[in-house]
Amino acid sequence: MHGRLRAEASRYGLELDLRERMAEKTGLPDQSVDSVISSLVLCSVKEPDAVLAEIRRILKPGGTFRFVEHVVAEDGTPTRASQRLLRRPWAWTFEGCSCERDLEGAVRAAGFASVTVEHYRLHTPFLPFNPQIAGIAEA
């Protein structure tokens, strides 16, 4: 999608520095980034805790990590049952995505100075995808 992103940025006169790297090892210097934005990433990486540690490492003091993720549903709910039932086909279809991760807990445990999270649900026929969080974590 980099081609599309570059074209759209060019349309608005923006210059981009895109790098194809793993989220666990960005290669960026310590405390060198003002903000990290992540949308539906932590559900599919192998080690969410390693990604969060990397984000903390590269964020400047007071920098922000802004994220949107789909998360595990509450135990005993129909959504949680469907997440368990569809776990493997979901991961095969959506590049390793897991709807069963407690990503809010992972962000809160990652050592950020503050974390604000909003819970919401998408109106979609893809039931396992319904529980969502959006938030800001500050370094």
Rank of each mutant, 00 (worst) to 15 (best):
T93V: 03
R57M: 13
F126T: 00
A81P: 06
V41S: 06
S44P: 07
E69T: 02
A109P: 05
S82Q: 13
A91Q: 07
T124N: 01
A106P: 01
D102V: 10
R21V: 15
A91G: 12
K25W: 12
Y12K: 07
P48H: 07
N130P: 01
R80F: 10
E47N: 15
V68Q: 03
L40Y: 05
P29M: 12
R108T: 08
L85A: 11
S82M: 14
R80H: 13
R87Y: 02
T77M: 03
L86C: 11
E95M: 12
G105E: 13
I133K: 06
R57L: 13
T77G: 04
R57I: 14
H123S: 04
C43P: 10
C43T: 04
V117Y: 06
R88W: 11
I133Q: 03
N130E: 06
W92L: 14
F126R: 00
A9K: 08
E24N: 08
I58G: 02
A91N: 08
D102H: 09
S32Y: 11
Y12I: 05
A106K: 09
P61G: 07
H123T: 00
S114D: 14
I58D: 02
R87V: 02
V51L: 05
E24I: 13
G105D: 09
L28F: 13
E15N: 09
K60C: 13
P78T: 04
L127S: 00
S39C: 05
D17M: 10
D49H: 12
N130Y: 00
V71E: 00
R66H: 07
Q31H: 13
E104Y: 03
E47H: 14
I37T: 12
T116P: 01
T93E: 02
S35Y: 04
V36S: 06
W90P: 05
L52R: 08
V72G: 00
L52K: 06
A50P: 01
L127M: 08
R6Q: 10
V117L: 02
M22A: 12
L14W: 14
S38Q: 01
A23F: 03
E69W: 00
T77L: 02
G63S: 08
K60S: 07
F67E: 05
W90C: 01
G3F: 06
D30V: 11
A53T: 09
A9L: 08
V41M: 11
R21E: 13
E118M: 08
F67P: 02
D75S: 13
P125L: 01
H70P: 00
T124M: 03
L18S: 10
Q132T: 00
T64G: 07
S39D: 03
E20C: 14
L18E: 15
R80A: 11
G76S: 14
V41P: 03
D17Y: 07
K46C: 10
S114A: 15
L28W: 13
E54W: 07
P89K: 09
S35K: 09
D102F: 03
F126K: 02
A109T: 07
Y120Q: 01
E100L: 14
V117E: 11
L42W: 08
L52E: 10
L86G: 10
T64W: 02
R108Q: 14
V71C: 00
L18V: 14
R21A: 15
Q83P: 07
E47Y: 08
E8H: 10
L42Y: 06
T93F: 05
R21T: 12
F65K: 02
V41G: 02
K46T: 15
P128C: 08
A134W: 03
E24V: 15
V33S: 03
R101F: 04
W92F: 11
